[in-house]
Structures are given as structure tokens and as C-alpha cells.
């Protein structure tokens, strides 16, 4: 039976899913949950969890294991791993591929105003790295995690498009 370890906002859930003729059989952390789901299109569906009603929009987040769930007016990031792989990974003491963010990408098109860190520098999570101007606002891009800057791909004054790689870490 497919079994997943799902990480949402720091919480972990053990979710087992089985597809049957009469719908999905789902257990969360070992307890069965009643599910009714109706797909509206590729990403959107109406989901009832023990009769509690949600309209959800689930999209892949550039990685096979990461998802973005839009529900109740907010956006929730989730990581979904095969349960047995997650256990192996945990035993080996390594972070998930999706959470070990190795690159910093431009979140929006804009102009690079300042690069605060040079290659080879050690950074801590949330350290300011780059100042980018977009929509007439200055925005500070911060380190996604602790690490070392491997490459810096932009310099001051460069124009970047959304999704461009700005820095790589190791």
C-alpha cells in the first residue's frame, strides 16, 4: 500500500493511501480517515476529510516531492516522500532534496541593487544575500538555509528574470 511521509510547516504525518472501487482508503498516523474527493480540473478538487469540507488547489513546486497546497485562502508548502525512503534517509541523517535548497532563484524580475556575500562565504539561514529592486520596491533575499556560497551568478546592476539562478550553495 502506498505510504508517504508528509512534512507540512514543521509537522510530519504518516499517510497511507489505497485506491478502491468505492473511493480512497486513507489512514493518517495509523488512524483511518474518511475521504471524499472530486477533481475539478488538473490541480483543483473538492476534498472532504471526515466530512470537513475543503476546496484545494495542489500544484507541484518544481520538484517531484514538493507540493504547494492552496486552501482556506492561504498557501501551504508540503513535502511528500515515500515513507520507506524517508525512513532510510533519516537513518542516514541527510536532509530531503527539496528542503536542502542548493540554489537561490530570483522570486521576481528585477534589478540587482546589491550583492552582500562573496563566493566561498559561510552563511546562516536568513542572512541577507542580495537586494533586488522590483515594482519600485527594494527587496532583500535571504539565505534559505545554513551553508556555504559556492557560486554567485549575478553582479550589481544586472537585470534578472523570475526564476534565474542568483547563487548556489553547498
Amino acid at each position: 500500500m502506498p505510504r508517504y511521509l508528509v512534512k507540512v510547516e514543521g509537522h510530519e504525518y504518516d499517510v497511507e493511501v489505497q485506491y478502491r472501487a468505492d473511493g480512497y482508503a486513507v489512514t493518517v498516523d495509523g488512524s483511518p480517515v474518511r475521504i471524499s474527493t472530486h477533481e475539478l480540473n488538473d490541480t483543483r478538487s473538492v476534498l472532504l476529510v471526515d466530512d470537513r469540507s475543503f476546496e484545494v488547489d495542489v500544484r507541484s513546486n518544481g520538484h517531484d516531492e514538493s507540493r504547494v497546497v492552496f486552501m482556506l485562502g492561504v498557501e501551504i508548502a508540503a513535502e511528500v516522500e515515500q515513507y520507506h525512503l524517508a525512513q532510510l534517509r533519516k537513518r542516514a541523517g541527510i536532509a530531503t532534496e527539496a528542503s536542502a535548497q542548493k540554489v537561490l532563484r530570483a522570486p521576481m524580475p528585477g534589478l540587482i541593487l546589491e550583492v552582500k556575500i562573496a563566493e566561498g562565504a559561510a552563511v546562516a539561514k536568513d542572512d541577507p544575500l542580495i537586494v533586488i529592486e522590483a515594482m519600485k520596491m527594494e527587496n532583500v533575499l535571504k539565505a534559505p538555509a545554513d551553508g556555504t556560497v559556492k557560486t554567485v551568478s549575478v553582479t550589481k546592476g544586472a537585470s534578472v528574470e523570475k526564476g534565474d539562478v542568483l547563487m548556489e550553495f553547498e
Binding site: 502506498p2 493511501v17 480512497y24 474527493t37 476529510v49 495542489v58 486552501m71 508540503a78 511528500v80
Partner: peptide, 15 residues
Amino acid sequence: DILRCAAIAAALNKF
């Protein structure tokens, strides 16, 4: 409770 439902939605999507 909501995070749990989000986890279910994500798992069902992957499934």
C-alpha cells in the same frame, strides 16, 4: 487539524 488536511491533500495529489 488544517495542516493534517493539507498533508492529506498533498499525499493524494502525489498518489
